[in-house]
């Protein structure tokens, strides 16, 4: 009998992703879905999609879901979780959504130790609206709203979300990962799984920041994008575990 080595996770819907070639959202979606399958929580999970490229994420997962106003996903998820404390609730947010317009909501959800999980996808640019500067855009990086390259003097510095959040007492799991190589994909999945387990155990707030590419708006092909991410983004945003109060999981 043949053994299936690759199949669609149950928690992903029968829908084609709308993401650009080389974009990492597809990989990250799949990892989240695999984790939901493995933890056997598909039937009890609620998701909150953001505004941005992943606004359609609520359609790509076979779980109950909604779309929050821009940046407000952690507040929407808070309302859901408080109403249904036995359910698993996660938000999926990009860097414009979480680190610009939604800064207050993410900090306070984390600080309250809200028992939800956030998947934070950082590609250093606004994708959906066409390549504008994000709060995470690197210095010198050209975007449609920093056409001469981001300057600290006028546009400020790239914001380090995980470094900021690690100081909030309510956060129990926080890791920055990348999915730019098979090994890193495996590590990223382990991080996402641990974040969901943190919630399942009722320990507090968990977040995984995933460094991601945006070939379309970076003006690079998919392979060049991965190289650029490895050479530049990882310098600005070093990967690693920032908070782990979950301990060993079996």
């Amino acid at each position: 009998m043949e053994k299936a080595t690759y199949k669609k996770p149950k928690s992903l819907a029968e829908k084609e992703f709308s993401y650009c070639p080389g974009c990492h959202h597809g990989i990250i979606h799949r990892l989240v879905a695999e984790v939901i399958d493995e933890l056997e929580i598909q039937g009890k999970t609620l998701m909150v999609a953001p505004v941005g490229c992943s606004v359609f994420a609520y359609e790509f997962f076979d779980v109950d879901g909604t779309v929050a106003p821009h940046g407000r996903a952690p507040a929407v998820a808070t309302g859901m979780k408080r109403a249904m404390p036995e359910r698993m609730v996660f938000t999926y947010q990009g860097d414009g959504d979480l680190a610009a317009i939604g800064t207050a909501e993410i900090i306070h959800a984390a600080n309250r130790g809200e028992k939800i999980t956030t998947i934070f996808v950082n590609n250093a640019i606004y994708g959906m609206t066409g390549g504008q500067m994000a709060p995470t855009t690197l210095l010198g990086m050209k975007t449609t709203t920093s056409p001469y390259g981001r300057k600290a003097e006028t546009e400020g510095f790239p914001i380090h979300v995980s470094e900021l959040l690690k100081e909030t007492a309510g956060i129990v799991y926080l890791e920055r990962v990348s999915v730019s190589s098979p090994q890193e994909v495996i590590k990223a999945k382990a991080a996402i799984k641990k974040a969901f387990i943190a919630q399942k155990k009722g320990l507090g707030f968990s977040l995984v920041e995933v460094l991601s590419t945006c070939p379309t708006n970076w003006g690079l092909d998919p392979v060049e994008s991965i190289n650029w991410l490895n050479e530049n983004m990882k310098k600005e945003y070093p990967i690693g575990v920032f908070v782990d109060k979950v301990g060993d999981i079996k």
């Binding site: 609620l46 909150v48 909604t66 929050a68 106003p69 407000r72 507040a75 929407v76 998820a77 808070t78 309302g79 859901m80 979780k81 408080r82 109403a83 207050a104 909501e105 306070h108």
Partner: peptide
Amino acid sequence: VAAVNMVYGAAC
């Protein structure tokens, strides 16, 4: 802003 979105989430 957060309050109304918590209402949104709970209303869902």
